[in-house]
């Protein structure tokens, strides 16, 4: 079963370690702006939502791309890019509902989460368990259980 990054926003404290580690492993810099995971911060409400590529089945970014850079890997199901063809037009960034495409200003290309080839740095560092790397069925079960508990406690 393929694995996916499961985000539990309720556990996120907005510490930003995932962003720092992501930029380190991908661009060799401590620079959250280069990270492929973002945290949507609503500080006044105390809400932090980590947003990263959701590996959509029929992604809007694939259709938006003018250079056919983006495709779905047929085996892993990860949305992958041939960044050498990217012209940096950023159409994919606008098309993505999750704001999950990051502009890499060092290479002038747009990139997205590739799950670090199966060992995501963000998940490894997350101190609060807001990010987990789970097989898809297990992730769905976890979501379902959490929702059941929530409704039972209503």
């Amino acid at each position: 079963m393929n694995k996916q990054i499961m985000i539990d926003a309720a556990k996120c404290t907005g510490c930003g370690l995932c962003q720092v580690l992501c930029s380190l492993s991908k661009s060799h810099q401590f620079n959250p702006s280069l990270a492929r995971i973002k945290i949507w911060r609503e500080e006044t409400r105390g809400v932090f939502i980590p947003l990263t590529c959701q590996q959509c089945v029929n992604p809007p970014c694939v259709n938006a791309c003018l250079m056919n850079v983006i495709s779905k890997d047929p085996i892993t199901g990860v949305t992958v890019r041939k960044t050498e063809n990217c012209i940096g037009c950023r159409a994919c960034q606008i098309a993505c509902p999750f704001e999950a495409c990051s502009y890499d200003h060092l290479l002038n290309v747009v990139v997205n989460c590739d799950q670090c080839g199966g060992n995501p740095a963000c998940v490894n560092i997350c101190p609060f368990g807001a990010l987990q790397y789970l097989p898809v069925n297990e992730a769905l079960n976890t979501c379902r259980d959490a929702e059941a508990v929530r409704r039972a406690n209503l």
Binding site: A9, A10, E42, V47, P97, E99, R150
Partner: peptide, 13 residues
């Protein structure tokens, strides 16, 4: 609050 956490992309919108 509970529903909106489930749809992260609603936040930017």
């Amino acid at each position: 609050p509970d529903l909106r956490r489930k749809v992260p992309w609603y936040w930017p919108a």
